[in-house]
């Protein structure tokens, strides 16, 4: 059964038809279960939250650190403290130096290789006690603010999908991809 004919049928009916195909006599070329319901990418605009370094998945919108300060104070300060200093080991989100004498403090500023990750993570997971409550603009604003706290962007620099993915992070060349080894 070709994909185009699959795409033309509504899901419920489709499942039954394909289940019948699955039960077709052995040896039949079509004896393979196919129960996925075709969907379009535009049905996923509110579902697919992956914002990648190449800019794919980044929504429209923009924000500056100056705007982000109040977003931060309202939504982040209670756990990440003033200037992103954190209230516990895993809530420090600013500072650090990968070249320090002692064991380096690894944060967004000192460690993270891609700025896109910051937008991606805040949009999907933060604030930790109320994730996915910020608008896309607010995520851009507070992303800009966290980058500002780390000295990576200026206070009035506008952060959008293009300017964000163009940022070279301080530790951007600090990672060695091992995936080819496995």
């Amino acid at each position: 059964m070709s994909m185009s004919s699959v795409a033309a049928r509504p899901g419920k009916v489709l499942a039954l038809i394909l289940l019948a195909a699955w039960m077709a006599p052995a040896g039949s070329q079509e004896a393979r279960i196919q129960l996925g319901t075709p969907i379009d990418e535009d049905q996923l605009s509110g579902f697919d939250l992956i914002a990648a370094p190449d800019g794919s998945g980044m929504p429209t919108g923009a924000g500056t650190a100056r705007q982000g300060r109040s977003v931060y104070e309202l939504n982040c300060l209670r756990c990440h403290a003033v200037n992103g200093e954190g209230v516990s080991g895993n809530t420090v989100i600013a500072g650090g130096d990968m070249r320090s004498e002692e064991s380096p403090l690894r944060t967004v500023g000192s460690y993270w290789p891609h700025a896109s990750t910051l937008f991606d993570f805040i949009r999907r997971a933060m604030p930790a006690d109320a994730p996915k409550t910020l608008s896309d603009d607010e995520v851009y604003q507070v992303t800009a603010y966290v980058l500002f706290l780390n000295g990576i962007v200026g206070e009035d620099e506008s952060i959008n999908s293009e300017t964000l993915t163009a940022i070279a992070m301080p530790n951007g060349d600090g990672f060695v991809d091992q995936s080819h080894l496995h």
């Binding site: 990648a52 370094p53 990968m98 070249r99 380096p104 690894r106 967004v108 460690y111 993270w112 290789p113 891609h114 896109s116 990750t117 991606d120 993570f121 997971a125 530790n171 600090g174 990672f175 060695v176 991809d177 091992q178 995936s179 496995h182």
Partner: peptide, 21 residues
């Protein structure tokens, strides 16, 4: 490049390079 394959679950070596994946 999710957070949990960059910020976390990466291995920083003594020379400060970090192994990913």
């Amino acid at each position: 490049q999710f957070r949990d394959e960059t910020s976390k679950y990466t291995d920083t070596m003594p020379d400060r390079s970090s192994l990913q994946f």
